[in-house]
Structures are given as structure tokens and as C-alpha cells.
Amino acid sequence: MIAAGFGFRQGTSLASLESALALAQEGLPAVTAFAAPLDKTALLRPLADAMGVPLHVIPREALRAQVTPTSSDASLLAYGVGSVAEAAALAAAGPGATLLSQRHISADHMATCAIAQGTPA
């Protein structure tokens, strides 16, 4: 699985999510799933549906269990993890997953996206 994890601020637009995804995915294979915490999924659902990929809801405990190479004060405060996007991607991709792309920030600084790949079973 190649998962795109997302983190974003309240009031983020679909264009912001698309921008973050495009930056994170540049030069990589197509993603096969999206991932985000429950409170972020309503805005992300239309993009997942349009791209034909499942949307994985990542519990806060699963986010906090991930070690992320980057850190945002906002993510630490709200979720207890350095990067929501990186943690969501890693959690969705499964045990042993690695980041293919650290979090990228949308042009308007409202959304982040990271890409992780799980290890084959």
C-alpha cells in the first residue's frame, strides 16, 4: 500500500489538499489510499472519492505511536505527534512502513501531505 497522509487547518480548501498531495507525490507511484484522523475526514472524503482511493481513519493512539522525522508545534499541541500527515501515512501503510516523502506544505500553508509505503506481506 502507498498511503497519502494528510493534516490540515480548519477552513482548508480542496485546492489546498490537492496542492499538498501534488507536492508530496511528485515523482512517486500513485497512492492507493488516503489517511487522516477522524476529525479531518469530512473534507478529505470528496478528494478520495474523486481519485477512487479508500480513506483510512487513523485513531489518535495510532498517530501518537508513529515516529515522524519532522515536527510542527500545531501538530504536537493538537495531536501529540510531530506531523499528522507523516503519522497518518505511516499508520495507514502498516507495520514496517517507511516514508517515501516527508510532509509537504500546500502553497497556501493550510494543508500538509506525506506519502508512506508499507512492506509487502
Score class of each variant (00 low, 15 high):
63 L>M: 00
8 F>P: 13
70 T>W: 05
51 M>G: 04
30 A>E: 12
88 A>K: 00
63 L>N: 05
12 T>S: 01
38 L>C: 12
78 A>R: 08
49 D>T: 09
7 G>I: 10
39 D>I: 03
85 A>D: 02
15 A>Y: 00
34 F>W: 10
48 A>R: 08
25 Q>E: 13
28 L>W: 02
68 T>E: 01
78 A>T: 14
80 G>L: 00
65 A>Q: 12
47 L>C: 11
65 A>H: 04
10 Q>W: 01
62 A>R: 07
29 P>W: 10
25 Q>W: 05
19 S>A: 06
6 F>Y: 10
21 L>H: 06
17 L>Q: 06
75 S>Q: 10
41 T>K: 00
45 R>H: 08
20 A>Y: 08
73 D>G: 15
29 P>I: 13
22 A>N: 12
54 P>C: 10
67 V>A: 15
82 G>P: 06
16 S>C: 05
80 G>Q: 00
61 E>I: 06
75 S>T: 12
69 P>D: 07
28 L>P: 10
47 L>S: 00
64 R>G: 12
35 A>T: 00
72 S>V: 10
78 A>Q: 13
41 T>M: 10
42 A>H: 02
27 G>E: 00
38 L>Q: 11
49 D>L: 13
5 G>V: 11
15 A>I: 11
60 R>D: 15
85 A>Q: 04
81 V>K: 08
69 P>Q: 09
6 F>N: 01
63 L>C: 08
81 V>Y: 12
89 A>Y: 09
47 L>W: 14
53 V>N: 04
12 T>D: 02
9 R>P: 03
58 I>K: 03
64 R>E: 05
66 Q>D: 09
21 L>E: 13
80 G>K: 13
23 L>Q: 15
69 P>C: 07
60 R>M: 13
39 D>W: 03
87 A>V: 12
21 L>R: 08
66 Q>N: 12
60 R>C: 15
65 A>G: 14
88 A>F: 13
62 A>M: 12
83 S>L: 05
23 L>A: 15
58 I>W: 14
39 D>R: 05
88 A>Q: 04
42 A>S: 04
62 A>E: 02
71 S>V: 14
67 V>I: 05
65 A>F: 01
82 G>F: 06
27 G>R: 06
85 A>E: 07
50 A>T: 14
30 A>K: 09
14 L>N: 00
82 G>D: 13
13 S>Q: 02
